[in-house]
Amino acid sequence: MTRRLPGWLVALVTGVFVLLHLPVLVLVAYSFNASRYSADWSGFTLHWYARLLERPDILRALRLSLTVATVATVLATVLGTLVALGLARSGFRGKRMVEGGLYLPIVTPEIVTGISLLILFVAVRVPLGVGTVIVAHTAFCLPFVAVVVLARLRGMDRSLEEAALILGADEATAFRRVTLPLLAPGIMAGALLAFTLSLDDFVITFFVAGPGGTTLPVLVYSMVRRGIEPTINAVSAVLVLLTSLTVALAARVGGERGA
């Protein structure tokens, strides 16, 4: 690392980093701005946050978002981990196809996923609501969990499981005592990804939510469409805080586990 980077390059990259973080920082800053309409700074206020508490729809949407994210994360983590374990086993017919197919839901435009689920639910006359949102979130989080856990499994020395077998543990015990503890960080990472994906998702939820499935992003979207108002800044800041807390908490737990 003896080579020095040219000054113009460092300046350019610094600029990109500023662009990458400025919008959200500005947004959070403005959630404390007393001015209602203009972008001019007219003093610090917590007024917009106080307003949030008077809005039962926002609190309801927040609670729903957390419920959906929790249930969908548990389902997607269990199913996705099982898929990864299946794929990590020695070769079987169709393995490459299944693995390639896992990426399909990841790359499919959300609008297509959302619309096709909407068509299905309408066709089989399933009423839209919390249930359909949870089902949809589990479906799009599952491949992410599987891919993350699979990467961890691939990096694991298979002879560790074999060592457990030769030391007298049967397959189930070897899984419990060796594979699972070593896989835990990967499963945690997958679950964390699923939780934030679910918490943040707007497009797919928008189509399968129906009247009873208004999550926080869906509510924020409808507020934005109705017109810009400072309350949205405050809700957005809450959403940012929520995901940041999740990540920080997970990093904490992961850190302690690793120590």
Binding site: D157, S159, L160, E162, A163, A164, L165, I166, L167, G168, A169, D170, E171, V178, P181, L182
Partner: peptide, 20 residues
């Protein structure tokens, strides 16, 4: 017979010590 039914010891190339 499964490995755990054979009462054999083994030392692996990578040692396969449980890192946790």
């Amino acid at each position: 017979r499964r490995p755990y039914e054979r009462r054999i010891g083994m030392v692996f190339q990578s040692y396969a010590l449980f890192p946790h």
